[in-house]
């Protein structure tokens, strides 16, 4: 290759410049707001303070944070519990049909998020399809109010992010040599012990990648709680939204955003560890 040392940097420069100017700088800017006071009329007053971070830990907001974490965690666990068997079944399907099955598992992920969420309004509404179905089956009581509940929010999150989790788990499953499972059987482990001691530990990176993805996107989500929770369920995403668009408390919104990003980074690091463990790398451990 006749590329000299500066050529690659030159090629990457415009993209890098764009990302630095419109992603790094704005993020640093907004996060720096977290250290300033809110102006009397909204806006920002440039006096240094840590008060905004203290407010994040205020019981009122900490509760919302923990509550969103709980909802996000539930969605994550449910998504993994559904995605794992699905990914496993796809990885066991005939070689030829695996890409097709995978394609159709991921396809909904690329259709509009709002529309996919809206579909659940249609299904869960008091006048929605499920209530109609129940009535048709002979149910005569009050229509069930399934919409605007926590379960509706969780269902929506799981539904929207499931394809990605299937993809992440499938990609580790498909890279797993079938001979490892055979070796386990050969050494005397039945199918269940083989799954628990070989298959599962080796596919944890996929589970972690999918799980972190669902959790991060769920905890910062504001569309699903707004549409399926009817605004009754404040999640961190909604809180940030409110600080910027209604309460006009940008410094506090910035502090909340910082908390979100820190959570995300912590989870990504955790995921990297899980990946390193399964691939047999040992980081930070004594070599003895």
């Amino acid at each position: 290759m006749s590329f000299n040392a500066t050529r690659p940097n030159l090629l990457a420069a415009p993209g890098v410049a764009w990302l630095v100017a419109f992603m790094v700088v704005p993020c640093v800017l907004v996060l720096s707001y977290a250290f300033f006071q809110r102006g009397v009329w909204g806006g920002v007053e440039y006096t240094f303070t840590l008060e905004n971070f203290a407010r994040v830990l205020d019981p009122l907001y900490a509760k919302i944070f923990l509550n969103s974490a709980r909802i996000a965690l539930t969605a994550t666990v449910v998504a993994i519990l559904i995605a794992y068997p699905a990914a496993y079944a796809i990885s066991r399907a005939p070689r030829m049909s695996q890409p097709i099955l995978l394609f159709f598992a991921v396809l909904p992920f690329w259709s509009n998020y709002l529309i996919r969420t809206y579909a659940w309004i249609v299904l869960l509404n008091r006048e929605g399809l499920i209530n109609n179905l129940l009535r048709w089956l002979g149910y005569t009581g009050e229509p069930l109010s399934m919409l605007y509940t926590e379960s509706a929010v969780i269902t929506g999150l799981v539904y929207n992010y499931l394809p990605f989790v299937i993809l992440a788990i499938y990609s580790t499953l498909s890279r797993l040599s079938p001979e490892l499972m055979e070796a386990s059987r050969d050494l005397g482990a039945g199918p269940i012990r083989t799954f628990l001691r070989v298959t599962l530990p080796l596919t944890l990176p996929g589970v972690a990648a999918g799980g972190v993805f669902v959790f991060v996107l769920s905890i910062g989500n504001f569309v699903t709680p707004a549409l399926l929770g009817g605004g009754r369920f404040q999640m961190v995403g909604n809180l940030v939204y409110d600080q910027f668009l209604t309460a006009n408390d940008w410094p506090f919104g910035a502090a909340l955003g910082a908390a979100l990003i820190l959570t995300m980074i912590a989870l990504l690091l955790l995921q990297a560890r899980a990946t390193a463990h399964a691939s047999g790398e040992r980081k930070g451990e004594a070599a003895q």
Binding site: S177, L187, S279
Partner: peptide, 13 residues
């Protein structure tokens, strides 16, 4: 009976 695999199939974790 036990099999020694061609790929060795050692558990990487």
């Amino acid at each position: 009976l036990n099999l020694m695999f061609q790929s060795y199939a050692l558990f990487p974790h």
